[in-house]
Amino acid sequence: MLKIENLHAKVEGNDILKGLNIEVKPGEVHAIMGPNGAGKSTLASVVAGNENYEVTDGKISLDGEDLEDLSPDERAHKGIFLSFQYPVEIPGVTVTNFIKTAINAKRKSQGLEDMPAAEMLKKIREKAALLEIDKTFLSRSLNEGFSGGEKKRNEIFQMAMLEPKLAILDETDSGLDIDALRIVANGVNKLKSKDNAVVVITHYQRLLDYIVPDFVHVLADGKIVKSGGKELALELEAKGYDWLK
């Protein structure tokens, strides 16, 4: 599904990714771990198409299609979803209105009419229940005054609504207490299927107790330095990252 080959990228003149390779197949869960500054969030931004990052070499493709010439919104229409580490506030735009706009934008790109209101409402209710989100939350301004946990839960709610092919969760566990972590992880697990894939970017083993990865990769200094199964995460938790350098 997602194939990244020899990816080099820089931001503000600094080389961050230096020849990264990874392949994610449908139905798989991959975890990317690594020390601060290794390039984990850069990888997420580059795949999503953030224009502040310059791809200097290599290739990213989704289902065999090169993403290079696609804008971030076009990539989203193809099914890429990024759960942001720091979701932004949009005052005056409610959670409901925002997700409605996003869903209808995607439908438009597929040549579909707007989703009928009743269907939209049903879907919103269903997904809100999955993430234990109550009604009042849906009419609040997007991320404005949200706690860290509410922001992350809202990200996963949007993911549930948009049903992406590939979801990248960037440090979704940061700022979550254990209950919120359980709810978010539970949501992600329920959304998993044989046709979609999840890439979890995290510092800690903790989240991986709930979202169990098929593969774990260690990213250090812009490259994948080690890959393995879920037991690699435990080893990293015990030993830290230094032994890999």
Binding site: S71, D73, A76, V88, I90, T101, A102, A105, K106, L162
Partner: peptide, 24 residues
């Protein structure tokens, strides 16, 4: 960052501006 956030959700820049301005 607001525009990129909207773009990532599939909302193009023009529509994103309209959304943000209407919210404001």
């Amino acid at each position: 960052d607001q525009l990129f956030y909207c773009n990532q959700r599939g909302i193009d820049t023009e529509k994103a501006i309209a959304l943000i301005v209407n919210g404001f």
